[in-house]
Amino acid sequence: MYHKTKAYRLFSVINTIVLIILSLLCIIPLIHVLAVSFSSKAAADANLVSLWPVNFSLEAYKKTIDNPVFLHSIWVSVKRTVIGTGLTLLLSFMAAYPLSKENSVFKGRNFYSWLFVFTMIFSGGLVPFYIVIQKLHLMDSFWVLVLPGAVNVYLTILLMNFFRGIPKELEEAAFIDGAGHFRTLFSIFLPVSLPSIATLALFSVVFHWNSWFDGLLYMNNSKSFPLATFLQTVIVQKDMSSMSINPKEFELLSQKTVNAAQIFIGALPVLLVYPFLQKYFVKGLVMGSVKE
């Protein structure tokens, strides 16, 4: 009906054009980076590459992938992403439910939610955190990548707000059927909030996949690095002022091409996750079905 009006059709055309332009603006720099990653060192170092590789070369990828640590680092990353995301989702899911209650129903939720926010805003910094990690014997352990960041306050608050959008009738019906809080949460809230959980999952996956500083700091050597940390260490920052020189090494490296290749090696898996999660964003899919 509405989409048949003339004005709306005009809007649709303009909208499509705007979206195409925006997409192009986003993709062109990436094409450039991709082109650089496939170019020869000489061309890249001379800044001669625009949108197509100059003197096609796989050197940059080879340099990264040839490292024996590489494959293992992917495994570490997959592990931390899967376990880390699973844990974060579970914790957020469980915490968001009580927090989404009114204060009149659940006395104490205000205290809890302020406590959550407080920990998000304030931090004691790296030193005490490092000491805690050490006292817990998490140093050089896989779990240091997963446990400290397990509670993501930001995501918990988001999910809590999504929960509030769930019609009260659903919950009340469950209570009347004699369901407790846990059953309501897992059998009523879980299916209807799949789109929100997909969003959370995406954020969490991206976070875990891209985190590198913890790996660098808490792992005692590169054998246990996750991919993001490993890639970080492939890039060489040439700070000549404090470095002794070995020209051989210069000849072997081009910061530009390796930097560029690194982005694609590092981001590709996450890019692939997105379309998969997208199907949960299809509008109203779940809500509609529950209603009937």
């Binding site: 914790l91 809890y112 406590l115 931090s123 805690v132 400290p148 509670v151």
Partner: peptide, 15 residues
């Protein structure tokens, strides 16, 4: 969640 927050966030806040 609270256990995690206490261990990894509140305790280090001593810093």
């Amino acid at each position: 969640s609270l256990i995690f927050l206490i261990v990894f966030s509140l305790v280090p806040m001593g810093g």
